[in-house]
Design a protein around this nucleic acid. Structure first.
Length: 471
RNA sequence: GGCGCCGUGGCCAAGUGGUUAAGGCGGAGGUCUGCAAAACCUCUAUUCAGCGGUUCGAAUCCGCUCGGCGCCUCCA
């Protein structure tokens, strides 16, 4: 098998992926801030981490995946206070919703979901370490990162700090900072924080945004781990600051590969909570879209390419999945005599194409083309009677293998007579078969039409078998 | 002001220097079928926003123009 190449934001090149420890991959994804329901744009990023995780596992790597839960920041505090409930209760509600959404979308669970509030000590130690090294300083109970003490600051994000435009948000921010571009590591307690604070060796307060990822990735993945993932909008400031913090404190590289996925657009623009132009998973489920249809749609397009999301695209997805479903059904129901080596050959060819595409910086669209070509090849072989019991087992195993990466080929939603024995429907199908045997076409069509009204589609297969499925 | 991305058939979307420009959706015709459904077959971009340049050769490299968009301390 060829090796995987990934576009590394660190080098801005396509780099061959070589894990730090042979056969093992340690990866970290910047997870959600649990102050509201995540929208499908957020899920595109998590879906991409899942795709990479699945493909690494497909290639035989033992993957250890950590995704943090940000449960302490301005918005979570504001939300909890607005409802007058403890921060933990407020954030748990959205964390649970997030886990449910991931499950619905068939996103592989991460091995660990550390919460920021459960790692305050680690963050405090990191701040102390930075202070000892003269990289952090205290001002009015808060601690700031002195970017002037980290010469490489700005390099990762390719920002020239001298020519940076200082926006209003920065200018209006904490004026006690030595340099307006310094960022908060620890925020000293203020009355508006209410009951949200920690009494620590560096004082009473709460952590800044970036320090949690430095602390938690260091704790669970160590120094210089393999892959760090996130959305492109995190390149600056979040990931730049993580690097400054971790590398400033440890003197070691934070991670070797940084992979960023592009945004999901809506109406040609960025989907974001602040613009209120987004769909949540529930919005789409309520409109009748199936989880796997949404998964397929969110996966569409290369991860480094912005992708426009539209209901229109879901319509096309539904038709594409129907094609994939019928291929699976064709294999399951094949009654051919077998073509032997031919089936192995076409699977080997398409699987090689699939791997070559995925190895090329996860070129998912091209990999999907290989899947559809396999579908055509298998359907054809099937129609030619080339799929017997042995070939069926080989074909199904191959489809399962592809699905370990894709996650939408097989699902409980694929309900046909093969996997579901609905007595009422089966009885009607039998009555129709009897009518057909008697060449009573009017009666046969009447039964088929009435089933169609219930969304049941019949297929008369060669050999006299009739199968049904829900539309 | 700085950094950067995109423009490929009716729609979505790969390809980024060299065989006939993947694949999906949609559309047209055909095979199969009692009729369907599904599947299969054929067709559906002489051309890659426009103009110039480099080259034996460009959708792919360079320049300009037009159009759309992202980041520059809330952000997936």
């Amino acid at each position: 098998m060829t090796s995987l190449r990934l576009y590394n934001t660190l080098t801005r090149h396509l780099d061959e992926f070589v894990p730090g420890e042979p056969g093992k991959v340690k990866m970290y994804t910047c997870g959600p801030t649990v102050y509201a329901r995540a929208h499908i744009g957020n899920f595109r990023t998590f879906m991409f981490s899942d795709l990479l995780r699945r493909y690494l596992a497909y290639k035989g790597y033992d993957v250890f995946w950590v995704m943090n839960i940000t449960d302490i920041d301005d918005k979570t505090i504001k939300g909890a206070h607005a409802e007058g409930i403890p921060l933990r209760d407020y954030t748990s509600r959205y964390a649970e919703a997030f886990f449910n959404d991931c499950k619905t979308l068939n996103i592989t669970p991460a091995d660990l979901y550390p919460r920021a509030t459960e790692h305050i000590e680690d963050m405090v130690h990191l701040v102390e370490e930075l202070k000892t090294k003269g990289i952090a300083y205290e001002a009015e109970g808060s601690y700031y990162y002195k970017i002037g003490a980290f010469p490489a600051y700005g390099k990762f994000a390719r920002l020239n700090m001298k020519e940076m435009m200082v926006g209003e948000r920065v200018a209006s921010d904490e004026y006690e900072k030595e340099d307006i571009r310094d960022f908060a590591l620890w925020k000293g307690y203020e009355a508006e924080d209410g009951d949200v604070f920690w009494e620590t060796s560096i004082g009473k307060g709460r952590p800044g945004w970036h320090i949690e990822c430095s602390a938690m990735s260091l704790r669970y993945l160590g120094e210089d781990f393999d892959i760090h993932l996130g959305g492109v909008d995190l390149i600056f400031p979040h990931h730049q600051n993580e690097i400054a913090q971790t590398e400033g404190a440890t003197g070691k590289r934070l991670a070797r590969y940084w992979v960023h996925s592009e945004h999901l657009l809506i109406d040609g623009g960025k989907m974001s909570k602040s613009l209120n132009n987004f769909y949540t998973l529930d919005d789409l489920l309520e409109k009748g879209w199936k989880p796997r249809e949404i998964r397929f749609a969110l996966l569409a397009g290369h991860y480094r390419q912005r992708t426009n999301f539209s209901i229109n695209s879901l319509e096309a997805v539904r038709a594409s999945l129907a094609r994939l479903d019928s291929c699976v059904r064709n294999q399951e129901l094949a009654t051919g005599s077998g073509a032997g080596q031919e089936v192995k050959d076409i699977i080997a060819l398409r699987e090689t194409e699939f791997q070559m595409a995925m190895d090329d910086d996860l070129n998912y669209p091209e990999a999907l083309a290989a899947v559809f070509n396999l579908v055509r090849d298998l359907n054809k072989t099937c129609a030619d009677g080339g799929i017997g019991p042995e070939e069926r087992a080989i074909a199904m195993a191959a489809l399962r293998r592809f699905d370990s990466v894709l996650g939408f080929l097989f699902s409980d939603e694929m309900e046909t007579c093969v996997v579901c024995d609905d007595i009422e429907i089966n009885s009607l199908v039998r009555q129709r078969d009897e009518a057909r045997a008697a060449k009573n076409w009017a009666e046969a069509d009447r039964i088929r039409d009435s089933l169609a009204e219930q969304g049941i589609v019949l297929e008369d297969r060669p050999g006299g078998m009739t199968v049904w499925r829900r539309k």
